[in-house]
Design a protein around this nucleic acid. Structure first.
Lengths: 140, 140
DNA sequence: TTCCTTGCAAATCGTTTGCATAATG
DNA sequence: CATTATGCAAACGATTTGCAAGGAA
């Protein structure tokens, strides 16, 4: 891996991500940063998001909804994906990595880790369940 | 949802999937079926895989490696993804859906379920770890 | 001056879709 | 006959990449 040089864009991407707890997608990062840096390109955003997650400064979340989400909180925690509105929410849940050992029983290989996330209806969508007129296609 | 009509292609896709326990991708299904049905199209394969998983006859697996895998075994079980060779393997592991309740504590919404899979090195790749010359890019 | 980073655009890749035709019930 | 399914190709959406120019060490 090449030596890292400083860049305004990368700084901006990381600090933007730190201000948000809603796990934005690359596109959201891009359109937001566009306001402060009108010339920033989507490619740069993707490159930096990839780089930052490669060096462990952020986490890339793949929740099966077809888009990557990014999280500046790299501490171990779990996520919830609303199948109605697509929002991603942090969950407070004790670490369950002991399931790695359970899974390892009788397995011919080495389990390095697991990916676990939850889905369902978020608080908002639960309450809106009887509201008429709003048509949405479910995520997942 | 429209009424279902019979089709040779769908039958072939489903029965092919039932013969395999390696969770093939759409493309693998396609190239294999091509031998028996030289005219089958990739679109048809995708349409039927989607349909079959919609009606619950098969499972679509999204393991974060960028491709969907398909499994004719719809009974609840877990999967392992080898980060070296990309192979997907079934795991024998007791159901852990009680984590849904754990995750629900203090959560303002309804948790419908969880997605959990494991990753690491499969048995084969574990043994090949010191073999020289073979260059592979890791999955995930 | 070296080599990383950017912006832009074109390219990938997996998957979906529109359409005219063929097959099913 | 009414309707679903197919093959083909074009369209898609998210992400990646090649390249020439700009910026950091």
């Amino acid at each position: 891996m090449p030596a890292l040089k400083h860049s305004k864009q990368r700084d901006a991407i990381l600090s933007f991500l730190m201000t948000r707890k809603d796990h934005p997608t690359a596109d959201v990062v891009y359109s937001q940063l566009r306001e402060e840096y009108p010339n920033i390109s989507l490619g740069t955003v993707y490159r930096n998001l990839t780089l930052l997650s490669d060096i462990g400064q952020i986490r890339r979340l793949r929740l099966g909804d077809g888009v990557d989400h990014f999280d500046a909180d790299t501490s171990p925690h779990y996520h919830f994906l609303c199948t109605k509105c697509g929002s991603v929410i942090d969950l407070k849940l004790d670490n369950i990595d002991y399931i790695n050992q359970l899974a390892d029983v009788g397995f011919d290989g080495q389990i390095a880790g697991n990916v676990t996330y939850f889905y369902g209806l978020c608080g908002k969508c639960t309450k809106e369940k009887c509201s008429a007129g709003e048509e949405q296609t479910d995520v997942l």
